[in-house]
């Protein structure tokens, strides 16, 4: 097991280094810089701006200077918000995005697993068709559509919940979490249905029933453990996806999370902020994948045996 973790961790380092290097040169290759504007500025002003942000140095010097700062844990100052550092902005947005992602994940797992198991228990009946059709809609419906629809129905027509903000008024976290979680709930429902269907036909379940166990113990203790394997493997990447993909929901609901910083940075050519958020999210994705592999290995003994040798 430790060997497994060690190997996977070592594999992550070149991945992240590549991400940093490629992003660093790619953002500089994109046409239009952080200081291009509609109004012409004089050469003196342009030179001063470039000097303040080290853009006057050759690219490789900028790169090494950036790497040195990075190893000290310093993402540098933001180009777009001169009074703030990238670290500060990331750590301002991160807790909000994490919280949003966590709620969305809870909703996704709760609804998804219940619906999927429900469907798998009585395949090809209404109890199967209804949740599966709903989940198909959930997969097809993008969050920039679902969000406004939920807002319209629950926020404006019914006036039950606030339609924007995060933590400013009671209940304003509900709609964004549901919007973000819906698509993942749909995937999880389908994954857990197929996982459960496969497991339910296995011999060991027949054995379990044959030895007289009550049905709910058979399902919860024996079937779920095997049937939810695909879901567990999916949760890690899904959570990373939730974090890096929350910008649509953050924009629709005016949430000051990391996703919005990420997108704004790209539009503003805020080089340090693009790099900072990309590197940060890439690391998160690597870590979550690692965690989900470890979790799968823990649940599924077959994987563990492979690494014993």
């Amino acid at each position: 097991m430790w060997r497994f973790i060690a190997v996977r961790t070592l594999q992550a380092i070149p991945v992240i280094l590549t991400v940093i290097t490629v992003t660093f040169f790619l953002v500089r290759a994109a046409p239009g810089g952080p200081f291009s504007s509609e109004k012409a500025v004089s050469d003196q002003v342009k030179a001063a701006l470039e000097e303040q942000y080290r853009l006057d140095l050759p690219a490789y010097e900028q790169y090494f200077a950036y790497m040195v700062d990075l190893f000290r844990g310093d993402f540098g100052p933001s180009f777009n918000f001169p009074s703030r550092s990238v670290n500060e902005l990331i750590f301002q947005g991160l807790p909000i995005t994490l919280e949003l992602g966590l709620y969305a994940m809870l909703i996704a797992v709760l609804i998804g697993v219940v619906a999927g198991v429900c469907a798998a228990l009585k395949p090809n009946t209404l109890q199967d068709y209804i949740p599966m059709s709903l989940s198909m809609i959930g997969i097809c419906m993008p969050s920039f559509l679902l969000g406004p629809v939920l807002v319209l129905v629950f926020g404006i027509w019914l006036d039950w919940v606030p339609i924007s903000g995060w933590g400013n008024s009671a209940g304003d976290k509900l709609l964004p979490s549901i919007t973000l979680g819906a698509m993942y709930a749909a995937y999880i429902a389908r994954l857990s249905r197929s996982g459960m269907l496969e497991v339910l036909s296995q011999d060991y379940l027949r054995t379990a029933r044959a030895k007289g166990l009550p049905e709910y113990i058979v399902i919860i203790k024996h079937a779920l453990r095997g049937g939810l394997l695909p879901v567990v493997a999916y949760i890690g990447p899904a959570f990373a996806g939730l974090l890096s993909g929350s910008f649509v929901v953050e924009t629709v609901f005016q949430i000051p999370g990391l996703g919005r910083f990420y997108v704004q940075a790209a539009f503003n050519r805020d080089y340090t902020m693009i790099l900072g958020t990309t590197v940060f999210l890439a690391s998160l994705i690597v870590v979550f994948n690692l965690l989900s592999d470890i979790l799968s290995a823990w649940i599924n003994p077959r994987l563990r045996y492979q690494f014993r040798k």
Binding site: V114, C118, F154, L158, V161, E215, Y216
Partner: peptide, 22 residues
Amino acid sequence: MILNRMKWTIAFLSLVLIGCGG
């Protein structure tokens, strides 16, 4: 049994939904 639990979960979720409405 499972179905029963599910009903409770759904009931609970809808309660949360409504309860949050100010």
